[in-house]
Design a protein around this nucleic acid. Structure first.
Lengths: 231, 231
DNA sequence: TTCATAGTTCGATGTTAATCGAAGCATTGA
DNA sequence: TCAATGCTTCGATTAACATCGAACTATGAA
């Protein structure tokens, strides 16, 4: 009859087979739609919808609407950690699922989305900016931190002129090949054109592919402390 | 409809409020009886018994019979880890419970149990032997490892004569003040008398208290790499 | 506007499982 | 051997909830 943190409530949420399947599917880090998750769990869309709103209410999922789709992803690292711990208990060795994206390798690696960088490198850049605390999520909005402001201006990007425009500075855009977030908004656009003026990257004329030069790739990796080639 | 590790099954086990309360109570590391756990969860003993056998069947608990009591403790570190992860999700800050033992401080610290060392120092010695891989659990039985054999003979204890006896060398005994395991069996007995011959410790005549000398305490701490005084 | 697609809400149904009383079993102590 | 204590098993009851069909809302496309 004692009260600690309400571990039962959230364990019960994970404890339903349908919900557990959805959560496991989301362990890839990618965002999935209601219908995809329904398929994954082997239930109808109505049922899935009900489950998903419970998971969202319990703080396990983060929903994002994009057009007429609703994408769900795990709410944060803690959720993934707890799931992994449970997987470890259930099976011994933890094993994560993989999920394949679209076809063309070059498109998947780096491409233009509207006017900013998308694809694997886009999401990696986004993750790096988050990890290094240059940008952060505040409620629904994405904001540039003080540290991030410093980082951007040091790059030689004129923030003031960006902020003068009425389009939002930072926007989160869901990458449809990676199903993860990348950076949109005027800052996302400015970063891509920054890469172009430095000759780090070139847009392909006919396709949406973005090609990084050898040097550009190295600089990109140094700047964001990532390892693009080893993925 | 996919199959990964069956995370739902075990999450459902944790997901019942009564069971979650029991598990939380066991996070102290101490073993508790069926009736105590029933009390903890606010349910009748029958219901508790049913829950506990499910938890045991799911591999979350380790039962030990001692007389007409049945003690339960968490099965292993992984279980505790998973519970903690869930607690973190549920509340943000993790917080462990405390549970008080019996009264007399000296008795709680070190005493004789049958003929071996019990109390706080007994369980600490046990934990240290386990952590340093001198003894380990093999199925239901406790065995001395090769490393442990070396350790014991180096102390100057005659293992051969111990093994000649028909009483088991290593036995796990549940400490009723600490509600954790300490080392019994002929080895446990030998260790205590070893401490006595070296004048590290003396048994009190009337009570079951074991008193360590200043030097004995230091040697004990060095030997097992623990810090008894700072608990 | 009209149609199609993606999700949500509502209501009815069926299954699961938590709960406890009562009876049974096992261990301990006298 | 008898009584007391600790726990388990059985059976009946009850409450919760997962599930899906059907109707509804919202977004996008023609």
């Amino acid at each position: 009859m004692k009260e600690g943190p309400d571990i039962a409530r959230i364990a019960a949420l994970i404890g339903d087979p349908a919900r557990a399947n959805m959560l496991t599917a989301l362990m890839s880090g990618k965002a999935l739609t209601v219908s995809e998750l329904a398929e994954e769990a082997g239930i109808t869309i109505q049922t899935a919808s009900s489950h998903l709103s419970k998971l969202e209410g319990g703080g396990l999922l983060r929903p994002r609407k994009q057009g007429r789709h609703k994408y769900f992803s795990l709410a944060n690292e803690d959720v993934a950690h707890a799931l992994e711990a449970l997987m470890g208990l259930a099976a011994g060795a933890g094993h994560l699922r993989k999920r394949t994206g679209p076809k063309d390798a070059a498109l998947r690696k780096a491409r233009v989305c509207y006017n900013h960088l998308a694809g694997d490198m886009g999401t990696q850049m986004f993750d790096a900016l988050m990890a290094q605390n240059h940008i952060k999520l505040q409620g629904e909005d994405l904001i540039l931190t003080d540290k991030g402001t410093h980082f951007i201006t040091t790059l030689g990007i004129d923030l003031d002129s960006l902020q003068a425009k009425k389009t939002p500075l930072c926007r989160e855009c869901l990458d449809w090949s990676e199903r993860r977030s990348h950076l949109a908004g005027s800052l996302g656009r400015a970063l891509l054109s920054h890469f172009e003026t430095l000759n780090w990257a070139k847009r392909d004329q006919n396709t949406r592919v973005v090609r990084f030069s050898r040097e550009g790739l190295q600089e990109f990796e140094r700047l964001f402390e990532v390892d693009v080639r080893r993925r």
